[in-house]
């Protein structure tokens, strides 16, 4: 691709870039990766707590999106669709490393109470890492991605009641972990 074409692509509206990518242009898809990598890598980093693994999973998500881009019905839905692909990639990974990942079973099994020592205050990413994977995913989709509970349920394929419980319990636990001083 000539530099002039590349420049045109970088200035093109996203819907046009998506249409070109869906038609088979690798350069157009690379432009989409360039535009969306920040948010997708950030999402994966919050989910994993490990930058290298997060980038690896983000790459997998982009490659899966590249393979299935023709299934996207509307270019306007690209952001949500890409996030859903990423969530599925992460869930697959989480099931491999920590089977089973059960959104209902996880509701019953609360982790042991965290240390009451105020000196053991944690930063946000460390606190997130202490949540159950199901809680972490629901909290991140709700707080960071701005999804409603129903949208989180749709993205994950989990029951709405389970999602609401994960968000409530995860929020309470994060508040405890981060301590009142940090939050107020």
């Amino acid at each position: 691709m000539r530099p002039a074409d590349s420049l045109r692509l970088s200035n093109a509206p996203e819907a046009q870039v998506i249409a070109l990518a869906a038609a088979g242009s690798d350069e157009a898809f690379a432009e989409l990766v360039r535009r969306r990598q920040g948010s997708l890598r950030a999402l994966m980093r919050r989910l994993c707590g490990d930058a290298a693994l997060a980038d690896d999973l983000a790459q997998q998500a982009f490659l899966q999106a590249w393979r299935t881009l023709r299934q996207l019905r509307s270019p306007g839905a690209f952001g949500g669709w890409l996030r859903q692909v990423a969530v599925h990639v992460w869930l697959r990974h989480a099931r491999l490393v920590r089977p089973p990942l059960d959104p209902i079973e996880d509701l019953d099994a609360e982790p042991a109470a965290e240390s009451p020592d105020p000196a053991a205050r944690l930063d946000l990413s460390a606190a997130l890492a202490q949540l159950k994977p199901t809680q972490r995913l629901c909290i991140i989709l709700n707080y960071v991605e701005g999804l409603s509970h129903a949208e989180v349920a749709a993205s994950t394929g989990w029951p709405l009641g389970a999602v609401k419980s994960h968000i409530a319990r995860g929020t309470a636990r994060l508040r405890r972990l981060l301590s009142v001083e940090v939050l107020s």
Partner: peptide, 15 residues
């Protein structure tokens, strides 16, 4: 919380 900086190496890895 900060987002990762745009990284051309990441784009190349996907390519």
């Amino acid at each position: 919380a900060p987002e990762p900086q745009a990284d051309e190496a990441f784009v190349d890895a996907v390519r």
